[in-house]
Design a protein around this nucleic acid. Structure first.
Lengths: 344, 344
DNA sequence: GGTGAAAAAGAAAACGTTTACATTTTATCC
DNA sequence: GGATAAAATGTAAACGTTTTCTTTTTCACC
């Protein structure tokens, strides 16, 4: 009942194991006659290559690890599909790890980086816990690491990355709201630990400052990137003495939560309050009212990240260590029905 | 620049490689004095175990593959999180493969099953393309396979599984609509290839038949499990000469699409039409109006599936080959605001 | 048909662990 | 302190490939 190995195939075919191996890996280098004999032996013995031995010998697994905040987030899963569409064709599978919004699973990522179980790691989420040590070690060893979506923290600045200009996008969205006449604009951020919305908040503050509007204390609330968090945060917002007329959310997930909280309070969108999201997940277009937001080219980001990863893997240490210029992809302001001029 | 191996550690510590290995794997079996010496040598050399060699030698990867229709589906990602919560603690990582709603990636799953890159495979999606061959082969070899959510097709009947009673759940939901006075009830199914909604459709038809209602041609439409598909399908439904007063959708994703289509037509939910979903994804509770649906205990399903998988892996061929009684977990009808008595 | 080069096949090492078995050291008991 | 058991360590094989280096075979050419 033991697994049949290359050896038994060789025996049955009357060739050496080297020839069998060559039949599998570079069939062109073996004569047709023997190749057929080996093929036959493979079928007759029911041989299946032992991937673990192969991986070991080759020093690679054809596995790429992807670290993201949560598989539940429709935006990141779309990026993921972009990644998959590229790496699939090259025979790679994906190991997926979640940081659960920075309740970081430091062990798993660290271990994966360290142990080379994966040929490379794509970071779609900030992995601050390691900032320094693990990543520099990985870099020294020439392990491919590519960053997507996430803005670069100092520790990650040396790795190739693909993302939109988050600051500018948030500024534009805020300017749009200001242009409609809104002055009391709130911002729902992820929270202290997350650099994801930090840049977006920065863009928001820049636009407010440029328009001469002050951001009142209590207008920037933490939604933790989640539906529930945003519902709570928006609830707070609605009790603010200077209630905002517009709520700009760090991502669409939170925007949907905000909309729910506003509806619960019996208020109308966009009549009483406007809501602006960020990401353009697919539910944004079908929400009621439909959600205005910033569209990121999620799939395209995924594809580009994936290509850089494949380059890094193929190119060896050099390619991966090469300081990649961050690739900035275009965003787009998508205007739907959740935004209108303020009441009065 | 070569990787430092156990050998150099042994040399520096003045012990044999076996002792180093033991320090790593069963430290209790080595004297403290030498253990410290080895520890020191490990640090000094910067040694890191070669996972690929270890996997090869041990014959396992600590990887579990999960096959699901799409990572974009909030229901399955919640199941996924349940799975993760269990296997994480045991040191397993997850390889995730998508069938893209039955545009099956037969190669990847088949290959993974065959090559033992993963220690086991959890199927949350139907994998009909293999029905026979690959799965029986996997079974013969004692490879752990566990099925979740999916109803069992004949080919899979021998594997352990965890799911709700889809037929009964759908019947109950339909009965609820009937009870409110609806007679013209439509059903949005996934499509021909998907056994996922097949049982649900069956439950719907049973309930209709039991109530003496006939299901008119054109009342059962295909939404392909997706938002867009459901929008289209529901659009068709609304032009039906005998327009339904209630739409029961095979999953919440499609229900959200249906709601959007209905709103687009200027109709009111639940005033003009009631909408019922299935799954209770988190967006169901925040949709506008909030969506009535069948709640599946997604996380719990994930946890149970994961536990069975771990058992199968640990228990060896025996445990996994053992015909598992399907575990039926309870569902729950969740009534929210998208359902009301029919107009008139 | 003999020569040489090219192509095909074989022999054996190597990859870095784990582990069965053998050996040495330590501890225990009288 | 010596016999014995137990604990600690060492030796070496094994895991199934891939790959380097040789050796053999084939083929084309004169």
């Amino acid at each position: 009942m033991k697994q049949v190995s290359i050896k038994q195939v060789a025996e049955l075919a009357g060739v050496s194991i080297a020839t069998v191996s060559r039949c599998l890996n570079e069939p062109s280098r073996v004569r047709e006659k023997t190749r057929l004999r080996v093929q036959d032996a493979i079928v007759r013995t029911g041989y299946e290559p032992n991937t673990l031995a192969r991986n070991f010998r080759r020093g690679r697994t054809n596995l790429i690890m992807v670290v993201l905040p949560s598989v539940g987030d429709p935006f990141f899963t779309e990026v993921l599909q972009g990644i998959r569409s590229v790496v699939d064709a090259e025979g790679y599978s994906l190991i997926i790890s979640e940081t659960q919004f920075n309740t970081m699973n430091a062990d798993e990522v660290g271990a994966m980086l360290v142990t080379r179980q994966a040929d490379g790691v794509i970071l779609l989420a900030s992995v601050f816990p390691f900032g320094g040590e693990v990543l520099t070690r990985a870099k020294r060893r020439g392990q491919p690491i590519v960053i997507g979506c996430e803005t670069l923290s100092a520790a990650l600045a040396d790795f190739p990355s693909v993302h939109i200009d988050n600051i500018r996008a948030a500024r534009e969205a805020t300017e749009h709201l200001l242009g409609l006449g809104h002055r009391r604009i709130a911002f729902v951020t992820a929270g202290a630990g997350s650099p994801l919305t930090r840049d977006r908040e920065e863009g928001y503050r820049e636009a407010m400052a440029a328009a001469g509007e002050t951001v009142r204390p209590g207008w920037v609330v933490e939604g933790g990137l989640s539906l529930e968090g945003a519902i709570r945060a928006t609830g707070d917002l609605l009790t603010h003495p200077e209630r905002p007329t517009a709520v700009f959310c760090g991502n669409d997930e939170m925007a949907l939560g905000a909309m729910h909280a506003i509806h619960q309070d019996g208020l109308n969108i966009p009549g009483d309050l406007s809501v602006m999201g960020f990401d353009d997940i697919r539910y944004a277009a079908t929400a009621s009212p439909t959600l205005s937001t910033i569209a990121q080219p999620a799939r395209e980001i995924g594809r580009r990240v994936a290509r850089r990863m494949l380059n890094a893997i193929d190119g060896g240490p050099d390619a991966s260590a090469r300081r990649g210029e961050p690739e900035i992809v275009p965003h787009r302001l998508v205007l739907r029905n959740s935004v209108a001029p303020p009441p009065d």
